[in-house]
Design a protein around this nucleic acid. Structure first.
Length: 573
RNA sequence: CGGGGCGUGGCGCAGUGGUUUAGCGCGCAUGGUUCGGGACCAUGAGGUCGUGGGUUCAAAUCCCACCGCCCCGACCA
């Protein structure tokens, strides 16, 4: 590949829209180009990286028996109505209408389509298990695309689906994927951890996320300092301390305009632990509920989903006023008869608490949960705070930002039941297929490699992902001796199986060096007038900053050694 | 959706009512001199100043509306 005629366009200055490290590198290096918010072109360099990633994924998916297929990106509404997700997905789903006024979506994921294939093709337990996968473009109308390719509205995903006849089969498929994913991310040269995760819209079964530790990632991980407990902070559980105060009678106290925990604690000169937050949750066509959390905690929304279902959300101020006769900030559980009340387990037996009085401008003191409130269920409803104790070992919990690379779910029968994807078991009984769903974000692997391996000079691709193995810098392409040597060198390297990009531009040396650093090609071979007299070239390793003078006859051997060394570094994980 | 910022040749920016042809750096084109960490000289091409409306003798510049993009938050496989 000759640079001179290529569609490689590096930018001399940082594009102003890029703030995160990976976004800056990808844009400056000419790997991607934005077309609209959250929508990108993958330019030749970026696309070659994505192709490298794809082939690693293919190899590992094929190794666990996955069969590649390609489902359409466009899907009719009916399938999504069968599963209920036509409504559940809401504004995150791109929708469109055809000329006959039929509704379609651009698929954000493909469980429905898989279930549809399965209900037609799978008849018997003898047809199971199956693993189907595709590498395909997904569409999600994210409320806020950001960080370039990290959260975008159109992105490439490897999604696979397992079909099994029983739970043991699902466990096996799940673990096969877990192992394959570890191999994939290791081969891509990334540092990652596996954490407990939330299923979100996918379902409520077991799920794990593959998280890359990066500064400024979108997700937060909760990690125990002592043991190996790691979880997405959204679902991390923790041990908390029970607190109780003096057991007194309920008493109203004026708290004019004091609505938030902070305002009330300051006004009454108490600690947040002394407060009970009352949160009103509603869902369309379902009974609203009241959730009680101690003042020093936030609600763990995952619990709402698992406890109540994900159509529940915080009520509007209007709904609160209508139900409680008071404004948000002044509502409480006392005297509430018509609602199911759930309380965090730390409030069990709590006495002498402060909460809203259901009267504007007033709170009540002396709340005794056991005495004054009818609790339907106590549960762990609170979000972990840094410094809480580990649920497993009691160690101290810390937080770290991370980037989600992949996610594996045990779906169970959610989609097979709603879409009627059944099979006949050994006894001739009809049963729903047990499904799993597994995703990897390809662009995220690319961006993550920039975050973890890149530096102020630009990208430094792991050899397994690099768009080219070797950057041949021709320092003076007008010098016949130099071009003759570089032609010979390039031919030797190509014949030895290296992919090369040849910088034959008639520009100054500094530009070539800087571009090769920015583009992040692992090995650079410099052919210039200095070495040409002695048939010497300069070989430079981007990742380690090592430099060697090498005779023409040794170039291929040296580059092979370096390539092997770079692969060993990756596998040394 | 709330808060903040930005929109001027390909990129980064200046200009914020009146030297009538809107500037600067980079890039691009042509010719020449250079050539080991972002060279130099000369000549040249390229802009409905996001869009629409308004104010004014006069608008990139002031006012209104809309659109787009970025950041923080909300939300989120």
């Amino acid at each position: 590949m000759k640079y001179n005629k290529s569609l490689i366009a590096t930018l001399r200055e940082d594009p102003k829209e890029a703030e995160s490290k990976s976004h800056r590198i990808l844009l400056r290096g000419g790997f991607i180009r934005q077309l609209a918010s959250g929508i990108h072109t993958y330019l030749p360099l970026g696309w070659r990286i994505l192709l490298k990633i794809s082939s690693i994924i293919r190899e590992e998916m094929d190794r666990i028996g996955g069969q590649e297929l390609l489902m359409p990106a466009l899907s009719p509404k009916e399938l999504w109505e069968e599963s209920g997700r036509w409504n559940e997905y809401g504004d995150d789903m791109f929708r469109l209408t055809d000329r006959k006024e039929r509704d379609y979506c651009l698929c954000p994921t493909h469980e429905e389509i898989v279930a549809d294939i399965a209900r037609n093709k799978i008849r018997s337990y003898r047809d199971l298990p199956q693993i189907w996968y595709q590498i395909q473009t997904k569409f999600r109308d994210e409320p806020r695309p950001r960080f370039g390719v990290l959260r975008s509205r159109q992105f490439i995903m490897k999604d696979s689906y397992s079909l099994d006849s029983d739970e043991q089969g699902l466990d096996k498929s799940f673990n096969l994927h877990k192992d394959a994913y570890m191999k994939i991310f290791n081969r891509c040269g990334l540092d990652f951890v596996i954490v407990e995760a939330s299923g979100g819209l996918m379902g409520t079964g077991e799920s794990k996320e593959f998280m890359a530790l990066v500064d400024g990632g979108e997700d937060q991980l909760a990690m125990c300092e002592q043991c190996d407990y790691r979880a997405n902070i959204q679902i991390a559980e923790c041990k908390g301390e029970h607190k109780s105060f003096a057991d007194t009678a309920v008493e109203e106290v004026a708290t004019p305009e004091k609505r938030t925990v902070e305002e009330v604690t300051q006004f009454l000169n108490v600690s947040p632990q002394n407060l009970v937050k009352s949160m009103f949750f509603t869902a369309p066509n379902k009974e609203p509920v009241l959730i009680l959390i101690r003042g020093d905690y936030e609600i763990r929304e995952e619990t709402i989903t698992t406890l109540l279902g994900h159509d529940y959300g915080p009520a509007t101020a209007e709904e609160i006023k209508r139900h409680f006769g008071a404004e948000p900030g002044f509502i409480g559980p006392v005297g509430i008869q018509d609602l199911n009340i759930y309380a965090d387990e730390l409030l069990h037996d709590a006495k002498g608490m402060i909460t809203g009085a259901n009267r504007d401008g007033y709170h009540i003191k002396g709340l005794n949960i056991g005495r004054d409130v009818q609790i339907k269920e106590f549960a762990n409803l609170r979000k972990m705070k840094i410094g809480d104790r580990c649920i497993k070992c009691g160690g101290k919990m810390v937080a770290q930002t991370a980037l989600e690379l992949g996610h594996i779910f045990k779906l169970g029968t959610k989609y097979s039941i709603s879409l009627g994807a059944n099979f006949l078991d050994e006894k001739g009984q009809e049963k729903p297929i047990i499904m799993g769903s597994y995703g990897i974000g390809l662009e995220r692997i690319m961006a993550c490699a920039c975050e973890q391996k890149g530096d102020e000079r630009g990208a430094a691709w792991p050899i397994s992902l690099a768009p080219y193995d070797i950057y041949v810098a021709i320092l003076n392409p007008l010098d016949k001796d130099v071009t003759q040597l570089s032609d010979e060198v390039t031919q030797l390297l190509t014949e030895a199986g290296f992919s090369t990009i040849i910088d034959d531009r008639n520009v100054s040396a500094g530009i070539k060096f800087n571009d090769s650093d920015l583009i992040g090609i692992p090995i650079r071979v410099t052919v210039g007038p200095k070495g040409v007299k002695n048939n010497l070239v300069d070989i430079f390793i981007r990742e380690t900053d090592e430099r060697f003078d090498v005779a023409k006859s040794e170039i291929v051997a040296k580059c092979s050694d370096i390539k092997d060394m770079l692969y060993r570094r990756i596998n040394g994980h």
